[in-house]
Design a protein around this nucleic acid. Structure first.
Lengths: 209, 209
DNA sequence: CTAACGTTTGTCCAACCGGTCAAAAATTTG
DNA sequence: CAAATTTTTGACCGGTTGGACAAACGTTAG
């Protein structure tokens, strides 16, 4: 078990939040090794030694950021439930994930950076907590398939494809905008994406017979 | 126009290849800023000054690597042609992209790293060459839709979704393997992915009426 | 007021990093 | 062979980076 959370003064809480916000900005844009404490300190409006008073090491900032991220990041999947209509349930999971890519692109990129580098700091979590959660939800989806509510296919790869297609709009944002151009690359691109993904996941590409 | 390629001795050609291979390994694992010349030199089996004799600056290595990458990386899309049957054509595009994720994961990660950081070095190419190519292929796909050969949807987002789902298996490999576990995360995962993606893109998830 | 405690800053350091340079070693050329 | 050229190396440099530290400053409680 972890030790209890250390008591913090009001200033400590505020400043730590400020630093984490700044670090999210910097880390997500430059990666861990590509970011310097000075950059984060400047973005947080304080001096480097001052920042190091609140977080003793650069890694501590990253670790704290990552822990918080994971909770919110997996929330949409946790909400995937056996209650409603399967297709509706999946559709709203996709929508929620796409909204997260739109509203929290920095978090998405921070996560992508970590995985790309081989997930050195969160591999145990992937193999433990994440795998458990996905296996659990895969079982739910499998139930829907056996009940004939959705087509039979591989639930794990289905989840991967939802992750991939939605996070793409955060992680590869520059490319998406470059390809769509100034006219179609504006704010409307997420609605276009939502429409497309809904159709893809529901009906695929075969023309209506 | 570019100047003509400089003449190189046999040793220069060999050593430059050796360096590029080593750099691909290092850059794709650590990103540009996260990699050091020393790491690349060691992976290439030579000293740092020796490496710098063949590439004057770290950036030169990265640039050369990126130029080569882009040609091979976009080859599958270039091959997408108006000749055969549309659904077959799309299916084999997806298959080719998935094979590239399987056979050239380092190239995929190198590219992903660059885009994630905002594509500082290849943005012009994205807005120029890449956009032109995608627009061209989107027009082809649109033709198929008007001819009733495939369902009507957004061709650009269709291309994005193919990129996202296939490259996911290279870029997020650690996560994919962690979630699938030791039994299903082996070499067979690409065949499972291929089967799943084919079904997804052709039929979607609606149960067969 | 004052002592205790929390916060901020300037200075400093050792390690690292990209890159230079001259000289040595190896190779090619005549 | 010897001269010219290419390749390799060790030593070095200036700038950056993560982090330590003590002293100064601010705040709060008695």
């Amino acid at each position: 078990m972890e030790g209890s959370a250390p008591r913090r003064t009001r200033i400590q809480q505020e400043k730590r939040e400020l630093i984490l916000e700044a670090a999210l900005e910097v880390f997500s844009a430059n990666g861990f090794r590509g970011s310097t404490i000075d950059q984060i300190a400047e973005a947080a409006g304080m001096s480097k030694p001052n920042l190091l008073y609140y977080f003793r090491r650069k890694e501590d900032i990253h670790e704290t950021l990552m822990q918080r991220l994971l909770d919110t990041w997996l929330a949409p999947l946790r909400e995937l439930d056996d209650i409603g209509d399967p297709l509706t349930e999946l559709r709203s999971y996709i929508r929620r994930k796409l909204e997260m890519a739109r509203d929290f692109p920095r978090e998405s990129r921070l996560f992508a950076n970590e995985i790309l580098q081989g997930a050195p700091r969160i591999k145990p979590m992937l193999e433990g907590e994440l795998k458990t959660l996905v296996d659990e939800k895969a079982a739910v989806i499998k139930g829907w398939m056996h009940a004939g509510k959705i087509a039979r296919t591989d639930p794990w790869h289905l989840i991967f494809s939802i992750w991939a297609t939605t996070q793409h709009y955060a992680d590869f944002d520059v490319q998406v905008r470059a390809v769509l151009g100034t006219d179609r690359g504006g704010d409307g691109r997420f609605e276009d994406a939502a429409r497309f993904l809904e159709q893809l996941f529901l009906d695929g590409l075969k023309p209506k017979g």
